[in-house]
Design a binder for these strands. Structure first.
Length: 560
DNA sequence: CGTCAAACTTAGGACCACACAA
DNA sequence: TTGTGTGGTCCTAAGTTTGACG
C-alpha cells in the first residue's frame, strides 16, 4: 500500500454521489402555541419564530441558564427579527417561551408513543434516505458515507466555557455547498429551484461536499465512513508510522534526555515538552485565538499556572503537579515524579514569569513537529500518543491474560488493558447518571445468585447422600442434573462478579475513544486468536467494519 | 519565520432502539 | 405488557497537521 500511494497526492479517480441531504424546512408553530412578550401574546415572523423555537427547546437545559449563552442567543435572535419585532422585543427576561417549550416536549412524547407500525414506517423511511444519499461510488466500489446530512440550524453549543455558546448556527442551503466529484461522473442534482455554490473535481482530497459553518467560520465536510477503503488505508498507515517509532524511540529518548542539558533554551524547552508528550501522552497543544473558543491547552501551550513544582510530595522527590483543561475542556490532573534535570529546567522556565505566561515560550507545535520530522520520517507529536497507547495495550494484555481463564475473565483482562490506555490518554466520561442505582441492582443480583449457589450445593449434597447407586452403572440423571445446575449457577455468579468489578473500575473512564482511535486493532485481533476469544466479543459490528483491514491480515503472532 | 486556511482525526455527550426484568 | 438500563449510533465540536503565502 505504501508503494501504491499515488503520485501527486491523488486519492481517487472516480467519485460519484448524490450530494448532501438537507435538513427539512422549518415548520411554523400551530396557532395554539404562543410566544409572549411582557405578558402579552405576540405573533412572530417566521424567521424570528424559528430561532425562538431553538431557544424554547432548550429552556430546561443548563445552557439556557448561562449568561453568555443567553446574551449570544438574544443578540443573534434580534438580527433575525423584523424591524417592528426588534422595536418591541428589547429584553430576553421579558420573553416567555414556555408554550413553545411545552409544544416540543409534547411532540417528543407523541413520537415516543407512536405505534409499532408507525415506528417501523419511520425506520424504513430513514433506511430509504440512507440508501439514496448515504453511499457513493469511489473507484468502482460502493462506499458508505459518514455524514451525508447537513447539520440542521440551531443554537451553537460549545464545550466548556465557550464564548460563542448560544449563537445562531444558520441553516445550510445548497447555495452554501461546494460539491466535489469525479470529472466525468454524474454531477449531483441540487434540490429543485436551487444551485450549488460550486462544483469541483479535486482528486487530492477525500471530501464529497463542504460548506462554511457561520459561528466559527470553519469548513465542514461530508466524508466517507470509517469502514471505507480510503479511511482504512489511512488508519493502517497511522499504525505503521507508530510501529516505526517503536524502532527508534529508544534513540529519541536518549536524545531528548541529552537535550535537557542543551546550551540552547529552545532545545531544552523542546526536550522537556517532548518528554511530557512521550511520558504522559499529552497532546501537542496548538495556540488558540483568545475569545474564539474555550481556554484549553495542550503540552506546548501550557502556562505557568498549570504546573506546580514540589521538591517533595507523597514521599517522592521532584514532583510536578499538572492541572489544566485539555481538549473538550476535560480536566487533566496528575502528580508525577520527574528526573532532576527536568525539574530544574521547569524551575528555570518558570523563573520571572507570571502565572498567565507560557511555560514553553520558545516552543511552538510547528517547530516541535519540524524537529520530529528530522528524527523520523512521518513523525509528529500525536504519533507518540498512538505509539504509547498501542504498546501499553500489548504489554498489559501480555501481563494480565491467563490462558486457563474463562472467556469472561479474559475479557475483564482485556478491558483492564484497555482501561490502562484510556487512563494514560485521559479519556474521561461523566459518570452515568444511573450508575449508583444500577450498581446497587447488580449487587443485589450477586447476593441472590450466591444464595442460589448455596442452595444448589446443599441440594446436590443431599441428593448424593440419599442416593443408592444403581447396579447397571448407568449415569444417574437426577444427580447429573443437580451437578449441572450447580455448575451453571456458579458460572453465572462469576460472570456477575466480573461484570460488577468491570463496571466499578470503568465508571469515569471512556474506553471507546482509545479503542477506536489509538489501539492498533491487530493487537486485539491477535490476542483474540491466541486466546480463543471470539472477535465479536471485543469489537462490535461497526468496529469490525472499521477494522476490516486488520481482520483480514492480523495473525495470532502479530506483534505491534 | 509566523499566520492562516484547509483537510483531516479525535472527542464526549445526546439520543434511540432493543434486550431484558418486573 | 410495560418500564428501564445499556450499548451502539449519531452528532458535531475540538483538536492536529500541512502547506501556501507574505
Amino acid at each position: 500500500w505504501e508503494e501504491a500511494r499515488s503520485p501527486g497526492g491523488v486519492r481517487w479517480t472516480q467519485l460519484e454521489h448524490r450530494g448532501p441531504c438537507f435538513a427539512p424546512p422549518y415548520e411554523p408553530l400551530p396557532d395554539g402555541v404562543r410566544f409572549f412578550y411582557d405578558g402579552k401574546p405576540m405573533r412572530l415572523s417566521v424567521a424570528a419564530e424559528e430561532v425562538a423555537t431553538f431557544y424554547g427547546k432548550m429552556l430546561d437545559h443548563e445552557h439556557a441558564a448561562k449568561e453568555v449563552f443567553r446574551n449570544n442567543f438574544f443578540r443573534d435572535w434580534r438580527k433575525e427579527m423584523t424591524a417592528e419585532e426588534r422595536r418591541v422585543i428589547k429584553h430576553l427576561s421579558k420573553c416567555d417561551f414556555t408554550e413553545i417549550h411545552r409544544h416540543f416536549v409534547d411532540r417528543a412524547a407523541a413520537r415516543k408513543a407512536l405505534s409499532r407500525e408507525e415506528k417501523q414506517r419511520l425506520k424504513e423511511e430513514a433506511e430509504k434516505l440512507q440508501q439514496e444519499f448515504g453511499y457513493c461510488i469511489l473507484d468502482g466500489h460502493r462506499e458508505k458515507i459518514g455524514n451525508f446530512k447537513t447539520e440542521p440550524p440551531g443554537l451553537f453549543r460549545g464545550r466548556g466555557d465557550h464564548p460563542k455558546m448560544g449563537m445562531l448556527k444558520r441553516r445550510v442551503r445548497p447555495e452554501d455547498v461546494t460539491i466535489n466529484c469525479g470529472r466525468d461522473s454524474k454531477i449531483p442534482e441540487p434540490p429543485a429551484g436551487h444551485q450549488w455554490k460550486e462544483v469541483r473535481s479535486d482528486r487530492t482530497v477525500t471530501w464529497l461536499a463542504a460548506w462554511t459553518e457561520n459561528v466559527q467560520n470553519t469548513l465542514k465536510y461530508v466524508m466517507l465512513n470509517p469502514s471505507s477503503k480510503l479511511k482504512g488505508e489511512r488508519d493502517w498507515e497511522k499504525y505503521e508510522v507508530a510501529r516505526r517509532l517503536k524502532g527508534v524511540v529508544g534513540e529519541i529518548r536518549s536524545q531528548y534526555q541529552a537535550d535537557w542539558k542543551s546550551q540552547e533554551m529552545k532545545a531544552r524547552q523542546r526536550a522537556v515538552a517532548l518528554y511530557f508528550i512521550d511520558k504522559l501522552a499529552l497532546r501537542a497543544g496548538n495556540e488558540k485565538e483568545e475569545g474564539e473558543s474555550a481556554d484549553t491547552v495542550g503540552c506546548c501551550s501550557l502556562r505557568v499556572e498549570h504546573v506546580q513544582l514540589h521538591p517533595e510530595a507523597d514521599g517522592r522527590r521532584y514532583v510536578v503537579e499538572f492541572d489544566f483543561l485539555g481538549k473538550d475542556s476535560i480536566r487533566y490532573y496528575n502528580k508525577v515524579p520527574v528526573e532532576k534535570p527536568v525539574y530544574r529546567n521547569l524551575q528555570l522556565f518558570m523563573e520571572n514569569k507570571d502565572r498567565g505566561e507560557e511555560l514553553f515560550d520558545r516552543l511552538t507545535t510547528a517547530s516541535l513537529n519540524k524537529h520530529l520530522q528530522d528524527l523520523m520520517d512521518g513523525l509528529t507529536a500525536k504519533v507518540f500518543r498512538t505509539y504509547n497507547a498501542s504498546i501499553t495495550l500489548q504489554e498489559q494484555l501480555r501481563a494480565l491474560t491467563r490462558a486457563d481463564d474463562g472467556i469472561a475473565a479474559k475479557l475483564l483482562s482485556y478491558n483492564r488493558a484497555n482501561r490502562a490506555v484510556a487512563i494514560l490518554c485521559n479519556h474521561q466520561r461523566a459518570t452515568p447518571k444511573t450508575f449508583e442505582k444500577s450498581m446497587q441492582a447488580l449487587r443485589s443480583k450477586i447476593e441472590a445468585k450466591k444464595q442460589q449457589v448455596a442452595e444448589a450445593k446443599a441440594e446436590l449434597k443431599a441428593a448424593r447422600a440419599g442416593h443408592v447407586p444403581r447396579e447397571d452403572g448407568r449415569p444417574e440423571s437426577f444427580l447429573d442434573k443437580r451437578q449441572r445446575r450447580l455448575e451453571k449457577l456458579e458460572e453465572q455468579l462469576v460472570r456477575l462478579s466480573t461484570q460488577a468489578t468491570d463496571k466499578e473500575e470503568s465508571k469515569q473512564v471512556a474506553l471507546g475513544t482509545s479503542k477506536l482511535n489509538y489501539l492498533d486493532p491487530r493487537i486485539s485481533i491477535a490476542w483474540c486468536k491466541r486466546f480463543a476469544v471470539p472477535v465479536e466479543r471485543v469489537y462490535n459490528k461497526t468496529q469490525r467494519e472499521k477494522f476490516a483491514w486488520a481482520l483480514d491480515t492480523a495473525g495470532e503472532d502479530f506483534e505491534f
